[in-house]
Amino acid sequence: MSWLGVLLVALIAYSTKLAGIIIPNSILERPYVSKLAVLLPVALLSALTAIQVFGSGQSLVIDARFAGLSAGVVAYFLKAPFILIVLVAALTAALLRFFFGVN
């Protein structure tokens, strides 16, 4: 993967954090900006979830990843911590592939 991308993404993130600390509050303290900061992660993370589970290049498929996510969702509602949700999802997909040859 490109080193330029890795360094740029880090630079932009750092600049965003620093901007908040040094820019006078009046510029950032608008309802629109704070609303946006809450809504952007909701939209992007939801889209990323869907694409990572159903996307395969430019087609959509249902495979072991979906079973993994489903198990992860159950773990979430059972109040499991982040790391456990991820582990349960991985394990579910891995077992389905190993024992049942699911794609």
Binding site: V38, P41, V42, L45, S46, L48, T49, Q52, V53, A64, R65, A67, G68, L69, A71, G72, V73, Y76, F82, I85, V86, L87, V88, A89, A90, L91, T92, A93, A94, L95, R97, F98
Partner: peptide, 21 residues
């Protein structure tokens, strides 16, 4: 894929977004 790491990615994003819903 053998260890389901690809499935972990989607679950990870879900776990990041769920508390925001």
């Amino acid at each position: 894929k053998t260890f389901g790491l690809d499935a972990a990615i989607g679950a990870g994003f879900f776990a990041l977004v769920a508390p925001r819903l």
